[in-house]
């Protein structure tokens, strides 16, 4: 009984939140322009289903494109940074500094360079999500047991051997752990860019509906965004468990 309850609990909590939200809206008689109730939100979703679908799809693919770039670039940069202490020390302050720049400030620059459209959204998603991947991959390499390295070096292993045989495989749980974080960040990046300047995507839809006070539509778009985020997170959580089963079974645990 307990396990079925545990399995159902995410659904129960989600439904519970909607019920509370609906009740609060009705009980306090909250104006739709302030906070639309779930029923109004779902009604708006049904009414505008086609544009919402279209915008959801745009947001999804631009996010995935930016995320794919971030994964490729993040792995390469993470391996480089984790490879050598000198590069690590040299690049780390630059990366921290870069990560501190609010990406919303970068979007206008990207729009100036590439024009209104999907490209700035992809690049913003990329810029915001590659950092955790780099850090985790580099950490995976840097935390290699020194004794294991000694064992291999005493056999005449070159740095490349050690990386291929030990470093890169042991980085996997760190990498897959970081993908879950990165994918949600990528959504944030895309939507920020779409809100600032775009002609498609959920961010654009939110900005547009907001400017014409269609609050139920704004909330419908927000809900769809959350659904996309949860779905992608679940996909990468599954991939993580699938590819790094050994890390879950052995004591070595993945970084978040």
């Amino acid at each position: 009984m307990n396990t079925t309850l545990e399995k159902l609990s995410p659904w129960l909590f989600t439904i519970g939140i909607f019920v509370l939200w609906e009740a609060a809206c009705r009980f306090f008689n909250i104006d739709t322009f302030i906070l639309p109730s779930p029923s109004e939100t779902f009604a708006a979703m049904a009414q505008h289903w086609w544009p919402l679908m279209r915008h959801s799809f745009v947001t999804l693919w631009t996010t995935m494109a930016g995320f794919a770039l971030a994964v490729a670039f993040g792995i390469v940069l993470g391996l480089i940074v984790g490879w050598s202490r000198t590069i690590y020390r040299g690049l780390y302050p630059v990366m921290i500094g870069f990560n501190c720049i609010p990406k919303v400030a970068v979007v206008p620059i990207l729009i100036m360079w590439f024009g209104i459209g999907e490209v700035p959204a992809i690049l913003t998603a990329f810029l915001i999500s590659f950092f955790p991947i780099v850090v985790n991959v580099a950490t995976g390499l840097a935390t290699m047991e020194p004794e294991l390295e000694d064992v291999l070096r005493a056999l005449g292993a070159r740095k490349l051997d050690i990386m291929l045989k030990v470093g890169i495989p042991r980085t996997q749980p760190y990498l897959f752990g970081s993908l879950k974080v990165a994918i949600t960040l990528a959504f944030v990046g895309t939507v920020v860019s779409e809100t600032v300047g775009a002609n498609a995507g959920l961010g654009y839809q939110i900005a547009l509906a907001g400017s014409s006070f269609q609050m139920p539509l704004v909330f419908a778009a927000l809900l769809l965004l959350a659904v996309e985020g949860i779905a992608m997170y679940a996909v990468f959580a599954y991939i993580e468990v699938y590819f790094t089963r050994w890390a879950f079974r052995s004591s070595m645990s993945a970084a978040a």
Partner: peptide
């Protein structure tokens, strides 16, 4: 430099879990 022929073992077995 590293001798290339020695076998080593430590207190921690340091096996590769994968």
């Amino acid at each position: 430099g590293p001798v290339k022929i020695a076998g080593m073992a430590f207190q921690n077995p340091n096996l590769l879990p994968w």
